[in-house]
Structure formats: C-alpha cells, structure tokens
C-alpha cells in the first residue's frame, strides 16, 4: 500500500466523520468544524488517490491549494452568518420548526 492510497483511505474516514458531525451536532460552531474536517478529507482523497502509484501529481495539488483558500473563505462566511444569527436570536442552533 503506497502512502497515497493510505492517506486517501484516511481521507474517506475523515469525510464520513465530517458528514456525521454536520448531521448530528447542533451547535453551529461545531458544525463549521465538522464541515472543515469534511473538506480536509476530500482534499486528502483528491491528492492521495491521484498519487496512488507513488508519483507526485501537480494538477490535483494545485486544485487542493485553491480549495484550501476557498475553504477558509467559506468558514469565515459561515462564522459571520453564525455570529449574525447569534446577535439576532441569541441562539447558535438552527431551529427545527421554521415552517411554523
């Protein structure tokens, strides 16, 4: 098993962990953490799987570099929205009965 395949497998586990976290955690900051772990898992799969034969591949590496910067922008945006929600409602959870 090459390092690429090993890290890609761990990326899958991290992705699943992140998905479970986004679905199960109520607190919005924790959800943002889970979302970031999901993203890290995706990046590992993208780079690790492309390098499963052991040769470094610059194309997915460049894409992941772009992805990391976009992920921090998404995190900052999510935090801004969460803080705004907290100012307006005093809560950091999404209410379940918003249809009513």
């Amino acid at each position: 098993m090459t390092a690429g395949l090993l890290f890609a497998s761990v990326g899958v586990i991290l992705f699943a962990l992140g998905v479970a976290g986004v679905l199960l955690l109520e607190h919005l900051l924790r959800r943002i953490l889970a979302f970031n772990i999901m993203g890290s898992g995706t990046f590992l799969v993208l780079v690790g799987l492309a390098q499963r034969n052991g040769i470094a591949d610059p194309v997915p590496q460049a894409m992941v570099l772009t992805g990391i910067v976009v992920a921090v922008a998404a995190t900052a945006l999510a935090l801004a929205l969460a803080r705004r929600l907290y100012v307006l409602t005093g809560k950091l959870e999404l209410s379940q009965d918003d249809e009513a």
Binding site: L33, Q51, V64, I68, A76, A82
Partner: peptide, 25 residues
C-alpha cells in the same frame, strides 16, 4: 504526500487563520 506547497498553505491558512477565526468567534 510530497506536496510542500499545500503543506505551507495548510499550516498558515488551515491551522493558523481558520484557528484564529474560530477562536475569535
């Protein structure tokens, strides 16, 4: 994974800046 570019960016952005944003929030 022989990707030092991403390593640099991850250390500065993924750990540093995201961590600072989260701790500030």
């Amino acid at each position: 994974l022989s990707a030092p570019d991403i390593g640099l960016a991850e250390a500065a952005i993924g750990a540093g800046l995201t961590g600072a944003l989260l701790l500030d929030a």
